Simulated assay, not measured.
Amino acid sequence: MAINLQKGQKISLEKEAGSSLNQVVMGLGWDALKKKGFFGFGGGSQDIDLDASCLMFDENKQIVDVVWFRQLQRKDGSIRHTGDNRTGDGDGDDEQIVVMLNQIPAQVKSLVFTVNSFTGQDFSQVANAFCRLINGDNKQEIARYDLSVQGSHSAQIMAKLYRHNGEWKMHAMGENSTGRTFQDLIPQILPHL
């Protein structure tokens, strides 16, 4: 059963999934915008590099670790990035971050998923851009945001997963921002932890 979330909504992942949830996947997809050439012919497409990141925070709002295109996996293997796609070529998710919730160290209290335009284009210049959170156990979509139609931002803080009373909950943030990497978003993330 799909979970339809609105921006700002908070849910219990396990309650919505109907059982304990072991794995979630943050998927990011986009297409390069086609450029028009001379008299509308030719032109090709412009490379656009969107990047998915997962930031891990402790209870003191300190970063414990980050999985992103420069560090594709946590040492303990609990979070893994499938690799950097620099063009958006192909169908479906162009980048994914796989999170084994049952393997996240106890000191990590929240995970924040972000999307950034590393090449600097805002999302109105990117075709078919989306980010989504998927139940890794049954492949059903939990939340999805269409990035291309939301305005002239170059980044989004998508969602926060956090521990509360021994279970994982999700806050669908969908907060637009600007910045080429996750570091640019930290000041905007901290008040939500």
Score class of each variant (00 low, 15 high):
37 G>S: 04
22 N>F: 11
8 G>L: 03
139 K>R: 14
63 I>E: 03
147 L>Q: 11
8 G>F: 01
188 Q>W: 00
149 V>D: 15
11 I>M: 00
63 I>V: 09
71 Q>C: 06
144 R>D: 02
121 Q>G: 08
93 D>V: 11
81 H>E: 02
183 Q>A: 15
184 D>K: 13
60 N>F: 00
145 Y>W: 10
75 K>W: 01
193 L>S: 13
6 Q>G: 13
55 L>P: 06
50 L>V: 10
181 T>W: 07
83 G>V: 07
169 K>H: 15
99 V>L: 03
148 S>F: 03
66 V>S: 01
175 E>P: 02
144 R>W: 02
34 K>V: 09
62 Q>H: 09
117 S>I: 07
59 E>S: 14
67 V>N: 09
125 Q>K: 13
167 E>Q: 14
67 V>D: 05
61 K>S: 14
7 K>Y: 12
128 N>A: 09
26 M>F: 15
4 N>C: 11
131 C>H: 04
22 N>G: 08
97 I>C: 05
87 T>P: 08
9 Q>A: 14
33 L>T: 12
94 D>N: 15
107 Q>G: 01
76 D>G: 05
36 K>S: 09
128 N>L: 10
114 T>E: 07
172 A>I: 00
12 S>E: 08
45 S>V: 03
137 D>R: 06
116 N>I: 08
124 S>T: 09
139 K>N: 13
63 I>P: 00
116 N>Q: 10
36 K>N: 14
140 Q>M: 11
127 A>H: 01
130 F>S: 00
145 Y>T: 14
128 N>I: 03
53 S>Q: 06
178 T>S: 15
157 I>P: 05
152 S>V: 07
154 S>F: 08
38 F>P: 13
155 A>S: 07
37 G>Y: 04
80 R>N: 12
103 Q>K: 15
147 L>M: 12
142 I>E: 02
13 L>F: 01
39 F>Q: 14
40 G>S: 09
144 R>M: 10
75 K>F: 07
50 L>G: 01
179 G>C: 12
192 H>S: 05
187 P>W: 03
4 N>G: 14
175 E>Y: 07
126 V>A: 03
102 N>V: 04
140 Q>S: 11
72 L>C: 06
17 A>G: 06
138 N>L: 13
52 A>D: 00
177 S>A: 15
77 G>R: 07
83 G>K: 09
66 V>D: 05
116 N>D: 09
146 D>M: 14
36 K>F: 00
122 D>T: 03
172 A>R: 01
68 W>T: 06
81 H>V: 08
84 D>T: 08
103 Q>L: 13
120 G>V: 04
120 G>I: 08
164 H>N: 15
102 N>I: 02
163 R>M: 06
102 N>D: 15
101 L>S: 12
159 A>P: 01
113 F>K: 02
10 K>H: 10
165 N>S: 12
4 N>Q: 14
118 F>P: 09
27 G>Q: 07
53 S>P: 03
55 L>Y: 06
30 W>K: 00
143 A>M: 14
65 D>G: 08
177 S>E: 10
30 W>R: 04
91 D>L: 10
173 M>G: 08
187 P>A: 11
119 T>R: 04
187 P>V: 10
121 Q>F: 01
165 N>W: 08
